[in-house]
């Protein structure tokens, strides 16, 4: 058993209704992002992905999956579980956006303020995070990612194929347009 030098990593966990999805259900192109809320590169990609969805509103949808690298980012797991707690209340994307727009405020005190700004009850969410209510979901995303060839954050899969290019808007537009035409 030997692997050739170049291997194209592929998404192994198909997108399902359990996923957090932004954009049209019938989009020609699905971008799956494995991200870490405390990762600066994910933070840098965030506005570009936002703009991608705006410019390709009919053709591209975004799926977000958790990939906290906790040994490097001490607040990443807590942020992910908070986002999931918001998600079960139908507010995932509001929380997701707040987290990426406040990456320097992910400590527990500021995070609670963020939860409040999103319009959710901080004490309730905090209790769920403390009880690790959503830890399994976050772990499931992580394991699916590592089995699919996620090799850092962010890692994007465009229609199931790992995107090894850049995360600037022109790169993302080119890659998703190519996938739409494929």
């Amino acid at each position: 058993m030997t692997t050739p030098l170049q291997v194209t990593a592929r998404l192994r966990d198909p997108v399902s209704t359990a996923d957090h999805i932004r954009g049209p259900a019938d989009a020609a192109v699905t971008v799956v992002e494995y991200g870490d809320f405390q990762c600066q590169f994910c933070g840098a990609a965030y506005p570009n992905l936002h703009e991608l969805l705006r410019q390709r509103a009919d053709t591209v949808r975004l799926v977000y999956r958790y990939f906290p690298i906790a040994n490097v980012h001490p607040y990443a797991e807590r942020a992910a579980e908070t986002a999931e707690a918001a998600g079960v209340r139908g507010r995932f994307w509001e929380m997701h956006d707040w987290l990426y727009e406040h990456q320097d405020q992910l400590d527990p005190v500021h995070l609670s303020l963020g939860v409040e700004q999103v319009g959710l009850p901080p004490d309730e969410l905090n209790a769920e995070v403390e009880n690790r209510t959503h830890a399994d979901r976050v772990r499931r995303d992580f394991v699916g990612g590592i089995r699919s060839g996620v090799n850092g954050t962010p890692t994007l899969f465009i229609n199931g194929v790992r995107h090894d290019g850049g995360y600037d808007l022109p790169d993302l537009l080119a890659a998703t347009d190519a996938a739409a035409d494929a």
Binding site: M1, T2, L5, S148, N151
Partner: peptide
């Protein structure tokens, strides 16, 4: 049981390792 060489600037991830461990 398995070996894999990556280009120096490419992080190979862990999917190949776990496939080998599954095997």
């Amino acid at each position: 049981s398995w070996s894999h060489l990556s280009p120096p600037d490419v992080n190979p991830g862990a999917d190949g390792i776990f496939d080998a461990l599954d095997q």
